[in-house]
Simulated assay, not measured.
Amino acid sequence: MSTAASSSPTPGTSTGPSPSGKRSTADAGHQLLLLQGGAELFPALVDAMDAARSVIHLETYIFEFAGSALLVAEAMERAARRGVNVRLVVDGVGTPRIPAEWAKRFATAGVRWRVYAPMGRLGLLLPSTWRRLHRKLCVVDGIIGFCGGINLIDDQDDVALGRLKAPRLDFSLRVAGPLVSEMADTMEQLWWRLQAVRKARQREFKAAWDALREASPIGDFSRLLQVLDGSASHADHAEHAEHPDDAESTGTTLAPPLGVDGARATLLLRDNVTHRHDIERAYLKAIGEARREIVIVNAYFIPGRRLRKALTMATSRGVAVRLLLQGKYENFLQYHAARPVYQALLKAGIEIHEYAPSSLHAKVAVVDQRWATVGSTNLDPLSLLLAREANVMTSDRR
Rank of each mutant, 00 (worst) to 15 (best):
T186K: 01
M187K: 04
Q189C: 01
L190I: 01
R193M: 04
Q195L: 12
V197I: 15
R198Y: 03
R198A: 11
K199G: 00
A200H: 06
R203C: 01
E204A: 11
E204G: 05
K206G: 00
W209A: 13
D210Q: 15
L212E: 15
R213H: 11
E214W: 03
A215V: 05
A215W: 03
S216D: 13
S216K: 02
P217A: 13
F221E: 10
F221H: 13
F221M: 08
S222Y: 02
L224Y: 03
L224V: 08
L225S: 07
L225Y: 09
Q226K: 13
V227T: 14
L228M: 10
L228E: 15
G230F: 07
G230K: 06
S231H: 14
A232T: 11
S233I: 07
A235Y: 07
A238R: 15
E242I: 00
H243F: 12
P244D: 10
P244M: 11
G251V: 08
T252I: 03
T253H: 09
L254M: 12
A255V: 06
A255F: 13
G259D: 04
V260E: 08
D261K: 04
D261I: 03
R264P: 00
A265Q: 02
A265T: 02
T266C: 13
T266W: 05
T266N: 14
R270G: 10
D271M: 08
V273P: 00
T274S: 15
R276K: 15
R276N: 07
H277A: 14
H277M: 09
H277K: 12
D278I: 10
I279F: 08
A282R: 09
Y283H: 15
L284K: 07
K285Y: 00
K285D: 15
A286W: 06
I287H: 04
I287S: 04
A290Q: 08
R292P: 00
R292N: 12
R292V: 09
E293L: 11
E293Y: 08
E293C: 06
I294K: 04
I294V: 15
V295L: 14
V295C: 08
V297A: 02
N298L: 05
A299W: 03
Y300W: 14
Y300A: 10
I302A: 12
G304P: 02
R306V: 00
L307M: 15
R308T: 06
R308W: 00
K309S: 03
A310N: 02
L311Q: 02
